[in-house]
Amino acid sequence: MGNPDSKTPAPTADAPATETDDLGLDREFFLILARAPVLALIWLAAGAAAHQFWAALSPTGGLNAGPLVVLCFGMVLAAFIDGWALKVPNWVTFPLILSGWMQGALHDFGVPIDAGTGGFLMSVGCTAVGFLLLFPMLAIGGVGVGDVKMQMGFGAWVGAYFGSGATTAAVGQADLHALMVVFWGFAYGALVGGAFGLIIIFIRRQWGANAQMYREIGGDLVRFASGNAAEAAKRAEERRKKWVKLPYGIPLCVGFLLFLGQKLILEG
């Protein structure tokens, strides 16, 4: 048994004390949550300003895509950080999600902040769909949590802007339902991500190892679909130690931009 009079040594310079509360919670995370509403208001104001600026440039009417420009900037910012640090930070994703919900709520109350028609429920619904589309890959370690939150932010804004598609249909554009935009933006991102993966495979030229890796990923997806998510996650965690990390935020961003560009510019 230990000496009851002994004392725990104070932290030294070589072993600094960690700054957590009694529950072991990450204080930095809660600081980000506390700042998120302020940052969300900034994103919201940027969307409204972009709407007014677009209207001034196009006085004859037509689709006002000012808020979508702000959304694309947010996606590019998240992708750039992901490519640099292999992580999409919460101070980008949380405010994007929250500001999208704010837009939807303002639309419900008839506040003319922009040309969007989607309400709060549509914004939240598209946020949830964005999460669900990437959840299987998250569960097997194929993408990071930040990538999922990035797509959720995209869904929040898309839901508030497009709604049921009435805005785009009214100005002669393709009838873009918000849920369709979220799904096809994700699909385009998956195609771009697959292309990025093929490029990496050709650069590394480790054909056998890569083929084995894809077989294992496919097997884990089957395990996840059959209800054995815990085993799939465990195997994926071991596999992550030896694979080359791809900042998936980049193909997600490129996919979103390609889809929006195709529908709103090429087909508009």
Rank of each mutant, 00 (worst) to 15 (best):
D5W: 10
F109Y: 13
L57S: 13
V222T: 13
G116E: 01
T60D: 15
A230C: 01
A40I: 15
L121T: 01
V124Q: 03
I250L: 11
T167W: 06
G185L: 10
G144F: 11
F29C: 02
A232S: 05
G110N: 07
A236E: 00
G116C: 00
G146P: 01
D5E: 04
A225D: 10
D108V: 10
P11E: 05
F196I: 06
G172E: 07
K245I: 01
V148H: 03
L258M: 11
N64C: 04
M150A: 10
L106W: 07
D220M: 14
I42E: 01
I265H: 10
V69F: 02
K87Q: 04
L41F: 05
V182R: 00
G146V: 05
I200V: 07
I81S: 02
G197T: 03
L252H: 07
V111I: 14
D14K: 10
A170R: 08
F53N: 04
F30R: 05
A236C: 09
G159I: 05
A56T: 06
L68C: 08
F120Q: 01
A187T: 12
A230N: 04
A40E: 03
G208S: 02
F259Y: 15
F186Y: 14
S58G: 09
P16A: 03
G255K: 00
I113G: 09
C72Q: 03
S123N: 06
L133Q: 04
S99T: 12
L132Y: 05
G110R: 06
W91I: 15
Q173D: 12
L134N: 04
N228I: 12
A10C: 08
A232V: 00
F259Q: 02
P4S: 02
L257Q: 08
A128L: 03
C72I: 02
L71V: 12
V145L: 11
G74P: 07
V145W: 11
Q212H: 06
A56I: 11
R205A: 06
L258F: 11
G74W: 07
P37L: 13
L25M: 13
A156W: 09
G165D: 03
L258N: 00
A211N: 12
A17Q: 13
C253H: 09
W54R: 12
G104D: 08
L31A: 15
A187R: 04
F73W: 08
A233M: 14
A178P: 02
